[in-house]
C-alpha cells in the first residue's frame, strides 16, 4: 500500500484547520467509497483526517425544518422516527442504497461525496477524464449501459451513484458548509455539478470547506410518495434508473409535486418541467404519462444506455402510480 498519515480530530474547527494545511489531505468518514478508491489506485491522499468523532450525528426538528448532522449514518437517518414520519421519501431512498452493512457505516456527508461507479474511472489502465483530465472518456464509445442520458458533456458521461441524494434534491434540502470563517448554506440542487469541461469535479464544495449538515423543510409529501429503483438485481446494485416521486393533493388536484431521477446524470436530476406540468392537475395516469414525456426532453443515449430513454419515462410513471396508490 501507499503510506498515508492518519489523523483523528473531534471538532469541526480542528478538522477544517487540518484540511487547509495540506491540499493532499482528505476527510475520512465511513470510508465505504474512499478506501475502495485508494485500493484501486484512483486516489492516494497523503493524509486521512478521521472525522468520525466530530459530533455531527444529530437529527432534530428546528422550526419547520429537519436538521441532519453530516456524520449521521445512512442507517440512523433511514430508521429515525422523525425522518420516517415527516420525510419518508428520504428513508425509502436510503434503504434502496447499498447493503445493510454499508449503510451502517456510510454517512450522509460521505454519501454526497461518493464518486461515480463508472468502470473506466476505477481502472487506472483505461482512459478517464474524470480520473485523469485529458486522457479521454472510455465510456463514450465503450461500455456505457450504466451511463448518463441527461446533461452529458463531450468529456464525461458518468452518473452520480447515490440514492439518498435523489430524495434530497426532490425535498429541496439545503447543505450546510463550514470553513474557518463560518458557515454558508446552499440549495442541495446546487451542490453537485454537471461534468462540463471539468469532469474531475463532482460538486461545488470548496477546498477549505466541510459538509456539516443538512436542513430539509417539512412538507406535506409524507402521504403520496415512492422511491422506485430499477436495477439489475433486487438489492445491492446501482440504479439503472431511479425515481423519487412525491405529491400532495387537495380535492384530487396536485398542489405540490416533486420528481427527481437517479442513474441518468452526473448529478441528481430534478424534473422541474414535469413538476410544473403536474401542478394543479389531477393525479391521473394520462397526466403522469405526459409528465414523463416532458422529463425526457434533451435526453440522449450513447448506445449501451439507449434503453434508458424508454426505461426512464416508464419508471417515472410507475413511481407516480405507486405514490398515488400509497394513500
Amino acid at each position: 500500500m501507499i503510506n498515508f498519515q492518519y489523523l483523528r480530530t473531534t471538532t469541526v474547527k480542528s478538522a477544517i484547520a487540518l484540511l487547509v494545511k495540506d491540499k493532499n489531505a482528505k476527510f475520512l468518514a465511513g470510508g465505504t467509497n474512499l478506501i475502495d478508491l485508494m485500493k484501486r489506485g484512483v486516489t492516494a491522499p497523503e493524509k486521512l483526517i478521521d472525522i468520525n468523532h466530530v459530533p455531527l450525528k444529530e437529527i432534530k426538528q428546528v422550526g419547520n425544518k429537519i436538521y441532519i448532522g453530516a456524520l449521521t449514518s445512512n442507517t440512523a437517518v433511514a430508521d429515525h422516527a422523525l425522518v420516517k414520519e415527516k420525510l419518508p421519501l428520504l428513508s425509502w431512498a436510503l434503504q434502496a442504497g447499498a447493503s445493510a452493512q454499508l449503510r451502517n457505516v456510510a454517512t450522509v456527508g460521505g454519501n454526497m461525496m461518493q464518486r461515480t461507479r463508472c468502470g473506466y474511472f476505477y481502472d487506472t489502465e483505461m482512459p478517464c477524464n474524470k480520473r485523469q483530465p485529458g486522457t479521454g472518456c472510455g465510456a463514450m464509445e465503450g461500455f456505457n449501459r450504466m451511463h448518463a442520458i441527461f446533461g452529458t458533456s463531450d468529456q464525461c458521461i458518468a452518473v452520480h451513484p447515490s440514492d439518498m441524494c435523489i430524495a434530497l434534491v426532490a425535498l429541496d434540502a439545503e447543505v450546510i458548509l463550514a470553513n474557518a470563517k463560518g458557515e454558508r448554506k446552499i440549495p442541495f440542487k446546487e451542490f453537485h455539478r454537471l461534468a462540463g469541461d471539468t469532469p474531475q469535479l463532482d460538486n461545488n464544495l470548496k477546498a477549505d470547506e466541510m459538509i456539516t449538515g443538512l436542513e430539509i423543510p417539512i412538507n406535506n409529501l409524507a402521504k403520496n410518495y415512492h422511491y422506485l429503483k430499477v436495477r439489475d438485481r433486487a438489492s445491492y446494485a446501482f440504479a439503472l434508473v431511479s425515481v423519487a416521486a412525491a405529491f400532495e393533493t387537495v380535492d384530487n388536484k396536485i398542489i405540490d409535486v416533486r420528481l427527481a431521477m437517479g442513474g441518468v446524470a452526473h448529478k441528481p436530476w430534478r424534473l422541474t418541467a414535469s413538476e410544473l406540468f403536474l401542478k394543479g392537475k389531477e393525479a391521473s395516469l394520462t397526466n403522469f404519462e405526459q409528465a414523463a414525456q416532458l422529463a425526457m426532453k434533451d435526453a440522449k443515449g450513447f448506445g449501451g444506455n439507449d434503453f434508458k430513454l424508454k426505461l426512464a419515462p416508464n419508471t417515472i410513471i410507475e413511481a407516480l402510480n405507486l405514490a398515488k396508490s400509497k394513500a
Binding site: 468502470g119 476505477y122 489502465e125 472510455g138 461500455f143 438485481r233 433486487a234 446494485a237
Partner: peptide, 24 residues
C-alpha cells in the same frame, strides 16, 4: 463484460458483476 478495444474487463468486482443476492 469486456471492453474489446482494450481487452480488459469492465465489471470485475462484486458491485458490478451481479451474483444473486438474498432478495433475488
Amino acid at each position: 463484460i469486456i471492453d474489446h478495444r482494450y481487452g480488459r474487463y469492465i465489471n470485475n468486482n462484486f458491485a458490478d458483476y451481479h451474483v444473486p443476492v438474498n432478495a433475488d
